[in-house]
Amino acid sequence: MTLAHCVVVASLLFLIGVFGALTRRNIVGILMSIELMFNAANINLAAFDRFLHPQGAVGQTLAVFTMTVAAAEIVVGLALLLAIYRNTDTAYAEDYHLLKG
């Protein structure tokens, strides 16, 4: 296990998340894909901290900040989704075209 292995795993996880965020029709699916991308970034932070900066913990601290922002993001995202769902009665992204006029 070298740093390259961790970076490859994190890249693949990030790309799976990108693919999901671009292609899922359900908004909850898009939010889940965004969580996968956050996790890929966290793996990278922990791996670089372990391999290149073994005596400090700055990378892990930044990963905890990322985690907090991700939690806030998903809470507000799901609350917004519930509010929109109550008005439009759909959870699919292509049906949200109120601003098109």
């Binding site: 296990m1 070298t2 740093l3 390259a4 970076v7 490859v8 890249s11 990030f14 790309l15 372990r50 391999f51 290149l52 073994p54």
Partner: peptide, 14 residues
């Protein structure tokens, strides 16, 4: 991304 990752192959665990 895989091209970037190849640059870190030398970093062994401490």
């Amino acid at each position: 991304l895989l091209k970037v990752a190849r640059g870190f192959a030398a970093a062994a665990p401490a």
